[in-house]
Design a binder for these strands. Sequence first.
DNA 1: TGCAACGATACCCACGAGGTATCGGCGCTG
DNA 2: CAGCGCCGATACCTCGTGGGTATCGTTGCA
Lengths: 278, 278
Amino acid sequence: MRYFVAVAEELHFGRAAARLHMSQPPLSRAIKQLEADTGALLLARSPTGVTLTAVGTVLLDEARALLEHADRVRARVSEAAGAAAITVGILGDGTDPGVARLAAAYRRTHPGIDIRVRDTDLTDPTCGLRAGLVDVALTRAPFDETALTVRTLRSDPVGVVLRADDPLARHDRLRLAELGHRRWFQFPQGTDPLWQSYWNGGTPREGPVVRAVQECLHAVLWNGTVGLAPLGHDLPAELAVVPLIDMAPSRVVAVWNKGDTNPLIRSFIKTATVAYRH
Amino acid sequence: MRYFVAVAEELHFGRAAARLHMSQPPLSRAIKQLEADTGALLLARSPTGVTLTAVGTVLLDEARALLEHADRVRARVSEAAGAAAITVGILGDGTDPGVARLAAAYRRTHPGIDIRVRDTDLTDPTCGLRAGLVDVALTRAPFDETALTVRTLRSDPVGVVLRADDPLARHDRLRLAELGHRRWFQFPQGTDPLWQSYWNGGTPREGPVVRAVQECLHAVLWNGTVGLAPLGHDLPAELAVVPLIDMAPSRVVAVWNKGDTNPLIRSFIKTATVAYRH
DNA sequence: TGCAACGATACCCACGAGGTATCGGCGCTG
DNA sequence: CAGCGCCGATACCTCGTGGGTATCGTTGCA
């Protein structure tokens, strides 16, 4: 019916399709189907243009009222639901382009829902999920997944971060073994072992302790240490990141507590999967 | 929303599913999805039973009103459309079980639509479609399809109709060649050549002229002629039908005039395809 | 008479709504 | 208090359809 109202108002299939953010053929089909169900021609397609038939005029009025009614229902129910809120944890500084798209999409499809964001440092890959500080975390695997549900959103190749003037920075790809003698920045003791081990390339390392992304970069810049990072992020010109060919890619994931009853999680995850799929 | 109203009224997923003619799991999922979109729990599932939450109560009222509104819109539009009608032609005496299911299904999904039926004899496989006597024909292929659109609904094996005491009737299958010396009942001159040729098994035959199903049966009973018929129909006990192994199966088809603008045709064909798919 | 516009058609792919089988949790019962 | 049964949730599969791209046919216009 939204489709029909759009076409009836534009009196032009192409423009209506644009307004509905879709292409023209499926719109034509949808209108045809509506006509088949009502049993009457709603739009007179003459080569000079599209006109409303008598029945079409009736339906236009009725459809407008009905759609308005539906919108009112939505509003009333979400009012009755109170300020529904979801807290999402984001690892690091959350400048991931996917996050921006996701936030925009979710605000659009669920207006009135209160989205709270909690930016966390790199020491807890679950962003405080277990502690109940967030409902869902946008983070990176791997980590201890007991009592959590994990959904992969994307995979990024991983590289090593070096000073731009580091001799190794001239390579266009490296192996972990070529970095064995370097100092690596380290997460503090007590962080998730799987997480810690992954970012150390699988073997224990020595180096300065970091907690946030900025600290990692500083550690590389000032201390000449190295460390791993997913590719595809903007870095200051003084730093270089060289792809590692023997490192499993880093998975961007959405995580939530198994058995969490907050109904918003379900819709949030769904929006997330499509937003990350471009 | 219909689903939600059903569950809210029954306060029992299983019973609601039965009422909606569906199974319980997809209903559970649908409600969950509604809850995800609303952002609030609508139903409190306790092991003792299902209860409406506060938000659920609000939605129940609103949903009832909205669904009622939608029904009113349907009624108003179909009233404005006037007595929309579709005339369907049926070949032979139209006792095909599929036809009954189709009629029932279409009346249910399109109440208020005037279905007129035109039973025709076997001399015109298009049931007067080209002459404009019907909008859509439920008939059997093959025939001249120029300017027609054909949609196959089902395929029936074909057999030869014989008197029960005919020596050939004792076989459980036959070949066309074994019937070469018999007289076959014939359609009148001027009927569609493809149609005529098909029911003659591909070669010209001699025999009494028939127009209706009854006449065919009488021709076999009283004149000792033979003829072809699709299997799977009830016949009087004095007649037998023996499957032919070298005869292409007979396709039950829906046909309409190419470019016909009656919008009901589309929905009728759709209902037909699902009705014939059991 | 060629061209541009526009709705219709053909074809393809991915998502989701529906199904069946099974699980898990709680209450009831012997 | 252990076992059973009820009932909603979960897992997994399949098919229909809603959306896409590419192309056609018609018609008005230059």
